[in-house]
Every structure is written in C-alpha cells, then in structure tokens.
Amino acid sequence: MRLFVDFIPVVVWALLAVVLVIVMLLASWVLRPHVLQNSSKTSPYECGEDPIGPARISYPYNYIVYTILFVVIDVMGAFLWLLSASTLRLEALILWQALIFIALIMGAISFSMRILPQAALDGKETLELYHEAKKAQKTKHMH
C-alpha cells in the first residue's frame, strides 16, 4: 500500500481544521455587535493600563545563540531518531559513532555556553540605528 493512503485520515482532519477555523471566524463575525470603533477600543490591551511607550524594544544578541542551540539539538535529535526508530543491531562501531556524534555536539554546545558571557552583545545599538533611520526618513520627507 502506498504511504499517502495511510495518511488520508490526516488529510481529512486537516480539511476539517481549516473548515472549523473559517466557521468560527464567520460565526464570531455574525454574532458580535458591530459598534463604532474608537481609539480606546483599538488600542492594545495591557491589563487595563494605558500603554506606555512604543512596543519596539531591543533584544540582546544572546537570543539568536539560544535559537541556534535549539536548532543544533533539533538536528542531533533527528539523526538519533533515525537510529532509534530502526532495529539495527547495536554493534560496537555504531555505538561508538553515536557516542562520538553526541560528544562532538555536546562539546560544541558546552564550549559555546562557556564563551557566551564573553561574546554577549546587548542589542541596544539596533534600536538606535532604527530610530536614526526613522529620523532620517522623516527629514527626507519634509524636504
């Protein structure tokens, strides 16, 4: 049997999910009161407080390093998933390969976590650069 025949229930489920979302959006559009929209209605909700300042803030560069670590673990997990999903007899060669693979990646991760405090850049200048560019754009529009 072809693989996609096994996945027909998944396709039906996906179509049902799409239909459900459309029906819910339509139903809420039909049922909700269509009142006048004003500035206090369209402002972002911050637990009842008035919003202060712009939503754009700068993030430290560490965030992308953590995401890279996540992707690395992801790739490692995929490779080991292939090994664990099979019924390969665990010979010494395969065992050593898997151990060296894990050790290399874990070594890289531990090294990067160690060096991370020395390489930590606070992303403050990204926001400054953005404001500068925005100001330059505004002055260009005025002239």
Binding site: Y61, I68, L69, V75, M76, L104, I105, A108, F111, S112
Partner: peptide, 19 residues
C-alpha cells in the same frame, strides 16, 4: 554523520567567535 557533527561544531564555534 561525524562530518555533520563537525560542521555543526564549526558553525557554533564560528558564530560565537564572530560575536
């Protein structure tokens, strides 16, 4: 597999070294 591990190692170390 080991080459992939080395490429990932190089990426991580290179990234951190650049920063």
């Amino acid at each position: 597999v080991q080459i992939i591990a080395l490429i990932i190692l190089t990426t991580l170390v290179g990234t951190l070294a650049l920063m």
